[in-house]
């Protein structure tokens, strides 16, 4: 129960931050990726702000035995660098460049631009389903 509330608060602050940051505008995100054209560096400021806070959070995490409302930390431990990490990231970047949307802003935009964001999110879920189907063969 407590951890569900923590997740809701985290998601809500996240969505508010996305809206404030300008990252819910696909044109602005596309502008960051348009390095050879009319470059918009805003995304770098967003990433910088988020990284500063999270770098501090990791330092605090190192000194904690358990999280505030759970019995243990459940963090990814794999160090494996394989073709799936690289190929998946290449694909993600291609889709990001095509639409100007990544998963967070797309889902947050369901509250503000239901039709275009909805088309993207439904397609994204279909893509996740497609990966699930072929996962064992990759």
């Amino acid at each position: 129960m407590k951890r569900a509330i923590v997740a809701l608060i985290s998601g809500t602050v996240f969505g508010f931050g996305l809206a404030l940051s300008g990252m819910m505008d696909p044109l602005r995100v596309r502008g960051f990726l348009d390095i050879a054209g009319n470059w918009d560096p805003t995304l770098a400021f967003v990433m910088g702000g988020a990284l500063v806070v999270m770098a501090a959070a990791w330092q605090i995490q190192k000194r904690m035995h358990v999280p505030l409302v759970c019995d243990e930390f459940s963090l990814p431990g794999t160090k494996l660098i394989d073709h799936k990490l690289i190929s998946g990231s290449v694909l993600f970047g291609i889709g990001w460049g095509i639409a100007g949307l990544c998963p967070g802003p797309a889902i947050a935009s369901l509250a503000t631009s239901i039709v275009p964001a909805g088309i993207f999110v439904v397609s994204m879920v279909a893509g996740m389903g497609a990966f699930r189907l072929v996962e064992s063969r990759l």
Binding site: V6, A7, N38, F45, M47, V53, M54, P76
Partner: peptide, 29 residues
């Protein structure tokens, strides 16, 4: 066309959100 102040402020909130998930529930946001 860039919005560095809004971007930085929004980014700090996104970092805070991820920190709440990490330190509160022990997971990656």
């Amino acid at each position: 066309g860039a919005a560095p102040v809004e971007g930085l402020a929004g980014g700090l909130l996104i970092g805070l959100a991820a920190a709440i998930m990490l330190l509160g529930a022990g997971r990656i946001a």
